Amino acid sequence: MVRLVLKGTNKTFDSLQTDYKVDDYSFSILANSFKRRTGQEWNKKYLLSFGLVSNEGNLTNAGALFADDCPLWQSRLYCTRWDGLEKSDAINDAEFAGDVLMLLREAMNFVKSNTKSGWKKLPEGRKNEPEYAERAVLETLVNHFSHRDYTVMGGEVHLDIYNNRLVVTSPGGMYNGSLIQDLDIADVSSERRNPILANVMAQLDYMEKRGSGLSRICNETKALDGYKEELKPVFRSTPTQFQTIIFASEIASNVGDNVGDVSEIKLSERQQNIVDLIKKLPTITGKQMSETLSVSQRTIERDLSAMKEMGILKREGKDNDGIWAILS
């Protein structure tokens, strides 16, 4: 009914005005991302020109999705690294709620922390052999956060990583009701369920306005060494959800099995910051780390647990008076 009313009034969910006052919210993540990705200083007037704030000074739903403390509780992300090829035992999992740029950052960090990044020796040096093309993963996540159906109150974006593939699923099928598997992705029209949200992502250079995201996912994956036609990304949709499947590079999956191939651990930016803090102060606590890095203590504990499992860190002594040891 909500979707029918929106279409009947020629409105989109992200354009609707909320009761949230702009003065009660900050946009530091959006401002920092804008400066970093465009090289321009953020100006508060962009909130109005981008459609994130109404003339009355209220946030639109798009504005709420970009606010630091996003008040829309359906803006959530569930991440799971499964042990095997199907959903069985989970090796690692995480849940996040908040603004779309934070969710995008955490999703990319989760992928980097739970996939292989190897390299192969060559006569002139070495060559990186990642499991997944980073730009293809980024494009996938941006598409799902930008085009998902936010009117589904009990839905969220799911990121599932298996031994041979990465799967992203979000609420809402194709906006025009068609099924993506019945279409040639090169001819898919750029119809946007959330045009304001998509436009801001385009302004941040996260996505293009020509609707070429699916083709780019395929092209970036195709550029990996060892690519075969059966590794081509798969797109599926139903009336209620959209799913992207990216298969792992066979060369990267076999890193360590061949002579001259060596596994390499790849940390997220936050995990590297944690290691740097420990180098400076081995007795530092999780609470001190969370305050220094401006993230929750639960997030720090999750990163510490993951790095202990990877053999990077070890806790020596008791929790209250112990120290951290960096193993590799």
Rank of each mutant, 00 (worst) to 15 (best):
Ser170Trp: 09
Glu191Lys: 09
Leu183Ser: 10
Gly177Ile: 02
Gln241Ala: 12
Thr221Phe: 03
Glu230Ile: 11
Ile217Met: 05
Gln272Gly: 10
Val168Pro: 07
Gln181Asn: 04
Thr238Tyr: 04
Pro239Glu: 11
Leu204Cys: 00
Val200Thr: 06
Asn176His: 10
Met207Val: 14
Arg236Met: 08
Thr244Phe: 00
Asn258Arg: 07
Leu214Lys: 06
Phe242Ala: 03
Met201Phe: 14
Glu229Asp: 14
Glu230Arg: 15
Leu179Thr: 13
Asp257Met: 15
Ala186Lys: 14
Glu264Thr: 11
Tyr175Thr: 15
Phe242Val: 01
Gln203Lys: 05
Ala202Tyr: 10
Val168Phe: 06
Lys209Phe: 08
Ser215Met: 15
Ile246Arg: 05
Gln272Trp: 10
Asp184Lys: 09
Pro239Leu: 14
Lys228Val: 12
Gln243Asn: 00
Arg193Gln: 02
Asn273Ile: 04
Asn258Asp: 06
Glu230Val: 11
Ile180Tyr: 04
Arg236Trp: 04
Ala202Lys: 00
Thr244His: 03
Arg192Ala: 09
Thr240Glu: 09
Asp225Lys: 10
Gln272Lys: 13
Ala248Arg: 04
Phe242Ile: 02
Gly173Thr: 10
Leu197Cys: 14
Glu208Phe: 07
Ser268Met: 11
Ser215Ile: 15
Arg216Thr: 08
Ser249Pro: 00
Ser268Phe: 02
Val234Tyr: 05
Asp182Ala: 12
Glu229Asn: 08
Leu214Phe: 15
Val188Phe: 05
Val188His: 03
Ile251Met: 01
Ser212Gly: 06
Leu197Tyr: 05
Gln243Tyr: 02
Glu230Leu: 08
Pro239Phe: 11
Pro171Ala: 02
Ser249Glu: 01
Asn199Cys: 13
Pro233Val: 01
Ala198Met: 12
